[in-house]
């Protein structure tokens, strides 16, 4: 037997994590630098509109410019931003007068919570249906589900959110930012208002992704059913349960997990729309607000966070595949 290579000393997942982290660092570095360069290159800044107001004296303006470092050269500004990053700071928000990190972190948490919930909902709905449809291709129910999913695949996310939003409003489902939050501030009450607020955006987001998960999972499961080793296992008389979980599931899960990893960017983008419409306090609405007020550091920070979230999701998907699929472990 030839000696196994370095894999004995460095497990596969460590090298994957390391190389991906390096890639992510390079990507984020490039992204942040490009953003800085872009804002430098484009005329006008946060204070352009303030300056237009006659009530603001040139002295105040100069003071503000100095305070936010708007006139320092690009290189120095970027270097000091990087230096702040090591201390966990993302630069001052110009309209909130505090560091963008403190502003963005809770928003990131809310976005991640919403996305994970939506993912869970979508999977819980789509996967069993998909497996059922693949196992019983002749079933009339599976046919109708398939057709329904196919049709809703074409439904634009925005239309979906607006429709769901209208329905939720009509039935009095509380919205995240709404005044319907219960008065009592106990943790239970807080949890309740969180969950009810989460319902509409999460369902809207899940409804947008579930059809594509359904389609892919059904295809992957049918494909796995046709694999010769699965047929052999069934022929050999293995119990259906064993075949399902030891043979079919791993084979079908691999394309599914890669799909999940690949679809993260789309989900985050859809999430931005959903958050904006339903008022979920995620990254999206804050980014939008910052775009309108040209709050540079918040914009850069929000994009960096969203990018990190997507790359982290991709990495997680890769690790899961690595764990599940022996073929690519080497």
């Amino acid at each position: 037997m030839p000696a196994t290579q370095t894999s004995e000393r460095v497990p596969g997942w460590v090298s994957v994590v390391l190389s991906r982290s390096l890639q992510a660092a390079v990507t984020l570095g490039l992204l942040s630098f490009c953003s800085f360069a872009l804002f430098e290159w484009i005329p006008g800044d946060f204070l352009t509109e303030t300056a237009a107001s006659p009530a603001v004296s040139p002295e105040t303006l100069a003071g503000l410019r100095d305070r936010y470092g708007l006139d320092t050269p690009l290189g120095i500004r970027y270097a000091s931003w990087l230096e702040g990053l090591t201390r966990g700071q993302l630069g001052p928000s110009l309209s909130y007068h505090r560091d963008a990190m403190g502003l963005l972190l809770p928003r990131l948490g809310a976005t991640v919570l919403l996305n994970l919930t939506a993912l869970l909902v979508a999977l819980v709905v789509a996967l069993p249906l998909a497996i059922f449809a693949a196992q019983n291709p002749e079933s009339r129910f599976a046919g109708w589900v398939g057709r329904g999913m196919q049709a809703s695949l074409a439904l634009p996310e925005l239309v979906l959110v607006l429709a769901l939003f209208a329905v939720a409003q009509a039935y009095g489902v509380p919205m995240p930012g709404g005044a319907a939050a219960p008065a009592d501030e106990s943790w239970l009450g807080g949890l309740y208002s969180l969950l009810t607020g989460l319902a509409t955006p999460a369902i809207a987001l899940a409804a947008g992704t579930a059809p594509s998960y359904f389609g892919h999972m059904r295809a992957a499961w049918s494909e796995a059913l046709a694999e010769s080793y699965v047929i052999a296992a069934r022929q050999a008389g293995l119990p259906p349960k064993v075949v399902r979980w030891r043979y079919l599931f791993p084979a079908a899960a691999n394309p599914m997990v890669s799909l999940l990893g690949g679809s993260l960017g789309g989900i985050l983008s859809a999430s931005l729309l959903v958050e904006t419409v339903t008022g979920w306090p995620g990254l999206g609405p804050l980014l939008l607000e910052a775009v309108f007020s040209r709050d540079v550091y918040v914009v850069v920070g929000a994009v960096m966070f969203a990018a990190s979230a997507q790359m982290a999701g991709n990495l997680a998907a890769d690790l899961v595949i690595l764990r599940m699929d022996p073929r690519i472990r080497s």
């Binding site: 490039l30 992204l31 993260l264 960017g265 985050l268 980014l287 775009v291 929000a302 969203a306 997507q310």
Partner: peptide, 21 residues
């Protein structure tokens, strides 16, 4: 690869932020 590794709508908004509103 870089472009595809980033969430499109966020990037779009950031780019839009750099341009006159």
């Amino acid at each position: 690869e870089l472009l595809m590794a980033l969430p499109a709508l966020y990037l779009l908004l950031a780019l839009r932020a750099a341009l006159p509103i």
